[in-house]
Computed example of a mutant assay.
Amino acid sequence: MNSLSGDTRLPQYQRLRDHLAQQIAQNRWRPGEAIPTEAALSAQYLLSTGTVRKAIDALVSEGILERQQGRGTFIRRPQFQSSLFRFFRFQTAAGERQVPQSRILSVEPVAAPSAVAQALGLPADAQVIRIMRVRLLDEQPVLAEEIWLPHALFAPLLQLDLSQQGPLLYPIYEDVCAQVVARAEETLTAESVNDVYARLLQVPVNSPVVVIERLARDYAGTPLEWRRSRGHAEHFRYSVDIR
């Protein structure tokens, strides 16, 4: 039997929802793994099945859990691999989709600039890890990215050669640091590129670029990563299905 912590002014289903989300963020269950049944959770926390079901429903609606007919309720693993294709069109001359290659330029510990500390919910000048990388098509840079991570959570990355670990960072975060990105918020803007990113993207200074800011969080909502991806405006696309 377990008791729920948290603000006792909140409804019990909300406290259970928050408790389960925290357990998931702490790897009590791994992505793709089933959580206990509603009956088991009811017995464990001495709550009605209706209260448990309402908490599970909330986590399902948030995309943290998913129900599989006849099998149970599982930790959902988000798919981020195709997110860039919502904003950029990367294609061959024949019109086939291409996935840009990844080239790590640097990985270093630094003091967090104020905007980074604010985004990640860290104290001013907290230690963070900055990753610089470019994404390329046919050896031509199409995206330049700066990626910021809390040092306390991602220090093991400093011992790795990330250039030898594959093009996707989130599986590395999970395998090496036990940090799972569960969801992300993205903001789209445009700017004139400065000399640093003009050099990385091989475009003239003040050329227009599209900027995607992404704040990635774990299952409990704690910020894990803040990144800025700057891309050639010529590759930019935006589409939305309005019903």
Rank of each mutant, 00 (worst) to 15 (best):
G6N: 08
T8E: 14
T8D: 12
R9E: 12
R9I: 04
L10Y: 11
L10C: 09
R15G: 06
Q22F: 00
W29K: 05
I35H: 06
P36Y: 00
P36G: 01
T37E: 02
A39M: 09
A40M: 09
A40K: 10
A43F: 00
L46S: 13
L47G: 07
L47M: 13
A55F: 05
I56L: 14
A58H: 11
L59V: 04
E62D: 14
I64R: 06
I64K: 05
G70Y: 03
R71S: 11
R71T: 00
T73H: 08
F74W: 11
F74L: 10
R77E: 15
P78R: 06
Q79P: 06
F80T: 11
Q81K: 15
S82E: 11
S82P: 02
F87V: 03
F87H: 13
R89I: 05
F90A: 10
Q91D: 14
A93K: 13
V99A: 10
Q101S: 14
R103I: 13
R103S: 12
I104Y: 07
L105T: 05
S106I: 03
A112F: 06
Q118F: 06
L120D: 09
L120T: 10
P123F: 08
D125T: 02
D125M: 08
I131T: 01
M132V: 12
R135S: 05
R135Q: 05
L137I: 12
D138A: 15
P141A: 01
A144V: 02
W148H: 14
A152K: 08
L153R: 15
F154K: 05
L162G: 09
Q165Y: 07
G166Y: 04
L169R: 06
Y170Q: 09
I172F: 10
I172D: 10
A178R: 13
V180E: 15
V181L: 07
A182P: 03
R183F: 08
A184E: 15
A184C: 10
E186W: 01
A190V: 07
V193D: 01
V203W: 01
V203G: 00
P208V: 01
E213A: 14
A216K: 02
A216C: 10
Y219T: 05
L224T: 08
S229L: 15
S229E: 15
R230L: 09
R230F: 00
G231W: 03
G231V: 02
R237F: 06
V240E: 12
V240L: 12
